[in-house]
Structure formats: structure tokens, C-alpha cells
């Protein structure tokens, strides 16, 4: 396994990109996008996290096995979010049997 040598220049570029995105986070906070507020903020945050993982953590230059492990980790996180989210989304649903029962009494 040969280590890929990353030039300092590319680190500076990524650092610059992260700084620009940070500034962008502050700027968009002054605008109200309505329902898109969360989506905009999360898009910027996810982009930054991806840059850090790919370049600062060297995943971009790593073997396919390492990439698989990273993807598996995020898949696991997705399981957590999806299943917790399914609880929150379906809390308002009331089974029809119960509504019928309540209407009858």
C-alpha cells in the first residue's frame, strides 16, 4: 500500500473552500428562504463535511476497502435517522379503529 502524497497547495485550496462556505453560511442566515432554510443550511454543511472527509481525511486517495467502510458508516447513520424519523413522521397517525371507537363513544 503506497501512501498518496498530497501537496500542501491542495490543502490550502480545501481550507479556502471551507472558509468560503463558512462565510456563505453566515450570509444565507440573513435571508429567509421559508421552508428551504433548513435545506440550504444542511446542503452547505454536508458539502463542507464531504470536503473534510475526502481530502483532509484522505478518503479520496484511499483504497476501495476504506471507501466501503466510510460508506457503510454513513449507511448505519442513515438507518438511525430513517427509523427515528419514521417514528416522528407517523406520531400523528391514529389507527382507524381508534378513531371509530372515539366517534362511537
Amino acid at each position: 500500500m503506497s501512501e498518496h502524497i498530497v501537496q500542501p497547495k491542495s490543502y490550502y485550496k480545501i481550507f479556502g473552500a471551507l472558509m468560503v462556505l463558512t462565510a456563505l453560511t453566515v450570509v444565507v442566515a440573513f435571508f429567509d428562504f421559508g421552508a428551504l432554510n433548513d435545506i440550504v443550511a444542511m446542503t452547505i454543511a454536508v458539502t463542507k463535511a464531504t470536503l473534510v472527509i475526502l481530502f483532509f481525511m484522505h478518503v479520496f486517495y484511499s483504497s476501495r476497502l476504506t471507501k466501503t467502510i466510510v460508506v457503510a458508516g454513513f449507511f448505519w447513520l442513515a438507518i438511525m435517522f430513517v427509523m427515528i424519523g419514521s417514528d416522528y413522521l407517523s406520531r400523528g397517525y391514529v389507527p382507524r379503529g381508534i378513531t371509530n371507537y372515539v366517534e362511537r363513544h
Binding site: W76, I79, M83, S86, D87, Y88, L89, S90, R91, Y93, P95
Partner: peptide, 17 residues
């Protein structure tokens, strides 16, 4: 990893979950 909600049947967790 997919069964943790069974600790929470008596909480306000959704019936469907």
C-alpha cells in the same frame, strides 16, 4: 441495530414505529 424501539413501547413513540 434495528430493534431498539422495543424499549419504548409505552412512551409516546408512534404506534406504527
Amino acid at each position: 441495530f434495528l430493534v431498539w424501539g422495543h424499549h419504548m413501547f409505552t412512551t409516546g413513540q408512534s404506534v406504527y414505529a
